[in-house]
Every structure is written in structure tokens, then in C-alpha cells.
Amino acid sequence: MTKAVWAALAATVILAGCATPQQGAIPVVDSSTPVSNQELTRNGGRMPTNAPPPMAAQAPQPQDGGVTVMVPGDNPAPIQTFAAAPATAPISTGPITIGPSAGAPAAQGYDSYSAPQPVPSAPTGIPSGRSNTLSADEQLDGPLLALLTTAQQQQGGGDLNGASSSLERAMRIAPREPQVLYRLAEVRLAQGDAAQAEQLARRGLTYANGRPALQASLWELIAQSRERQGDAAGAATARQRAKVGA
């Protein structure tokens, strides 16, 4: 009996051995990898503190029809900031906050709700004017500069989806910053979505009051988008606006 058992075991082992696909290689395909927080980090233990490097003064510009307005120093002419006006000028035909807050003259007595209380350093809007003499581009917040730089690197490396994703990240931080929308429109155009590029540029225009250089660039981008869409007349109109703005 023992012999039989041993024989059987031996046979099993041999047969099983024969069935082993490759010697020494474990035929395991771990096709489902972990999901928890930690393990997604590819360089687990490393503790770098690297935010994306602060944007170099001469960050490379994407080659796109020579549109260059974004980089501090590139555009030294002081551009009037949009947000500076409303709170201080009650009687004005300039930019005025919608609603009663800015519209009602303080002297009229019913200004109980008219004093605008801008939320301190609200990051969601156009950078509130620290100084009127700074160019709008110089006022870009730290996170925006960092994310725009990251996006530029991704775009430079051909990762348009990544660039788009980074720019949308920036847009969530500052949805009303036209430079972010401008960049996003650029990436969309590079991705071949001319229609969205035009729409994003148009959205950017609605936030670009008082920034003629940026307006001109946005119009130029609209012109290119329209050309791509086969709208030559529309492109010409937009290009005209680009010239007027600049």
C-alpha cells in the first residue's frame, strides 16, 4: 500500500512538474494592481517638497502663431487691472458690480447693503488688485503660475491630455482668470477641437476687460479656431478685432 501511495505521489509530482509551464518563472500576471492611497505613489518613500518650479521669467512659449502675452516681463506695459475700479467709484460708467452694492451711491442714504465687502483675497476671481501698476500677468497667484508651468511642460512633451487636465485644475482654482482659459483654448486647438477652442477663448474675453493685449491674443486664437473650422469670414472679423485690441 505504502508503495502504491509513494508511487502515486511520485507520479503526481512528476506529472505536476511536467505541467509547470516554465522553469523558474512564476506565471503570475498581476493584472489588477492596488488601489489604496499609498501604493499609487510610484516612488513610495521619497519625500520631495518640489512644487512645480516657479515659472522662469523666460518660460518657453508654445509655438502658436507668435502669440506671446502671458509671461511676466514679456509684456511690460502696465495693464489696468479689472478689479480695481468698482469698490471705490460709486458714480461711474466703468466696470460696476452688478446689483445694488456698487450701483447705489453711498450718499443717498439707502446704502445699508451697498458697501461691497469683497471676501478677503478671494482666490476664485481675477486677482484683486494689489496695485494698479502691476501688470495683470504679474499678479497671477502662486498656484496658477505653478499649474500653468506644469501644463506648459506637459504640452511641450506632447501630453496634451495631461496639459488639459492641469489647466482645468488651474481653472477650478481661478475660474475667472482669462489666461487660464486662453491656455486651455490653445491646448484644445492643438488637440484638434477648434470649436471648443473658440468657445473657451470667447469665455476668456468676457473676463478680459481692461487687458487689451490679452484680448488681442484671445481674438487671434478665435481667428485661428475659425480658420480651422473653415469660417474664413469669421476669422477675418476676429483678426480685425485682434488688431484693434493690440
Binding site: N37, Q38, L40, T41, R42, N43, T150, D159, G162, S165
Partner: peptide, 9 residues
């Protein structure tokens, strides 16, 4: 803890 996102880590 760090995390892998769409546009990078």
C-alpha cells in the same frame, strides 16, 4: 500620502 492622478503623481 501621495497619490497617482490623471495628469501625474
Amino acid at each position: 500620502r501621495g497619490f497617482q492622478f490623471y495628469e501625474g503623481e
